[in-house]
């Protein structure tokens, strides 16, 4: 090879061309059950400008690829990226973006969905939840593992709208802690919403845990209204369904993830091989001698 580095560069370009050709989003088919739109939602997603690795509109596209209808961008103690995402994502074919925040305090993490302004973290959870409600949003306990339990007192649990019962950490910790918290939550709020969220930052787990939201419309307002009314179903990592038994029955077998055509998967494989090998070549190899 006369100029191996140039060849490596050409491989990168070929990878980008193939990757672009393989970048087709699946068709959106609204799921209707009992007069509701069943929105597949991931209500705990991070993005760039926070500690997520993609721009919010790109996360929304990846969410669409995984069959989600809506995501809430919930960066830690800020809403700027979420607002940008809500504005841009619909123009780029992504899932609907709801503005959210992961209120990250030393003793608790709380997801706020459907808000517009950031909510301070230097307050008790019950007060933070009141602020979420004052903005018309819904409040969800984020990954309430044992370390956070002492902060979730009775007053806080009574004001909560939902709790995460499926989260990626349960894939290695098991489902018990979140199930136990959810039982405790349901004692205080019998109609509280069951939520499955991926807490996505990086890699391909957006939508790994998801919430089926029975909404009256495909909108952020309808999403929040349904969460606050407890019209959700979530499956935990053990396969147990949580939520109103009537809604679980109405949902039936959860829809399968969208499958890519084989040509698209193969093209994506070729694209990443070309791009990664090409980049390695650009790094490792000398260019043509002068």
């Amino acid at each position: 090879m006369r100029d191996a580095r140039a060849f490596a560069g050409a491989l990168v370009v070929a990878g980008l061309v193939a990757g672009t050709a393989a970048d087709r989003l699946p068709e959106v088919r609204p799921l209707l059950r009992g007069g509701y739109f069943v929105l597949q939602a991931d209500l705990h997603v991070h993005s760039f400008l926070g500690d997520g690795t993609l721009w919010p509109w790109d996360v929304a596209r990846e969410a669409r690829r995984r069959g989600l209808d809506v995501i809430a961008i919930t960066n830690h103690n800020q809403v700027l990226a979420a607002r940008l995402g809500r504005w841009l994502a619909p123009h780029l074919g992504g899932a609907l973006v709801a503005v959210g925040e992961e209120i990250t305090a030393p003793g608790y993490h709380l997801i706020a969905v459907g808000i517009d302004a950031p909510i301070g973290w230097q307050q008790a959870p019950a007060q933070a939840i009141d602020e979420v409600h004052a903005q018309g949003g819904a409040a969800i306990a984020a990954h309430p593992t044992l370390v956070f339990w002492p902060t979730w007192d009775q007053a806080a649990l009574r004001s909560l709208d939902g709790a995460e019962v499926c989260h990626p950490l349960t894939y290695y910790q098991g489902p018990e802690y979140l199930r136990a918290f959810f039982r405790r939550f349901k004692l205080e709020r019998p109609h509280g919403a069951a939520v499955g969220s991926s807490d996505w930052h990086v890699f391909r787990s957006v939508g790994l845990c998801r919430t089926f939201v029975f909404a009256t419309a495909r909108s952020e307002r309808a999403l929040v209204e349904a969460i606050r009314a407890g019209r959700t179903v979530a499956y935990d990592v053990g396969g147990t369904a949580h939520g109103d038994p009537g809604l679980v029955a109405l949902l039936g077998t959860p829809p399968a993830l969208p499958a890519e055509p084989r040509w698209q998967s193969l093209l994506a494989l070729a694209a990443r091989l070309c791009a990664l090998v090409g980049m390695a070549g650009v790094l490792f190899l000398r260019g043509r001698a002068a």
Partner: peptide, 13 residues
Amino acid sequence: FAVADSNRPSAWL
């Protein structure tokens, strides 16, 4: 990040 997050390095991503 495009490969890690999406499995396809599209020019846009």
